[in-house]
Amino acid sequence: MIKYSIRGENIEVTEAIRDYVESKLAKVEKYFNPKQDLDARVNLKVYREKTAKVEVTILFDSITLRAEDVSQDMYGSIDLVVDKIERQIRKNKTKIAKKHREKTSAGQVFTTEFEAEPVEETVATKIVRTKNVTLKPMDVEEALLQMDLLGHDFFIYTDAEDNTTNVLYRREDGELGLIEAK
Rank of each mutant, 00 (worst) to 15 (best):
V42G: 07
I127W: 10
E175Q: 14
P118C: 03
K35W: 02
E121D: 03
K99N: 11
T111F: 01
K136E: 09
D73P: 02
L168M: 03
Y20D: 06
K182F: 01
K126T: 11
Q36W: 01
K35M: 00
K30H: 08
A16R: 15
D153V: 15
M74F: 01
E175K: 15
I179E: 12
I96W: 09
K91Q: 11
V81K: 05
V28I: 11
T164M: 03
I17S: 11
I127Q: 09
V21Y: 02
R171K: 13
I78Q: 00
I58Y: 07
R66T: 00
K131Q: 15
Y31N: 07
R129M: 13
N33I: 00
I156T: 04
V109H: 06
L44Y: 13
L145E: 07
D173S: 15
Y47K: 11
A143K: 06
S77G: 03
R48V: 10
I2A: 03
S77R: 02
S23R: 14
I58S: 03
L38V: 12
E117A: 10
E86F: 10
G151A: 11
D79R: 00
D162A: 00
F154D: 08
G107P: 00
T130Q: 15
D69T: 05
A124Y: 05
N92M: 10
Q36F: 07
L150I: 14
S62P: 09
D39C: 12
N10R: 15
E86N: 03
T165I: 14
T122V: 04
V109N: 03
R41E: 06
E49D: 09
D69M: 04
Y157C: 01
T158G: 01
V46L: 06
Q146K: 15
D19E: 12
K27W: 00
I17F: 12
E142Q: 13
K93Y: 08
T125S: 15
L150V: 13
L145G: 12
R170S: 06
T94F: 13
I11M: 05
G151Y: 12
K103E: 15
D79A: 03
V42M: 12
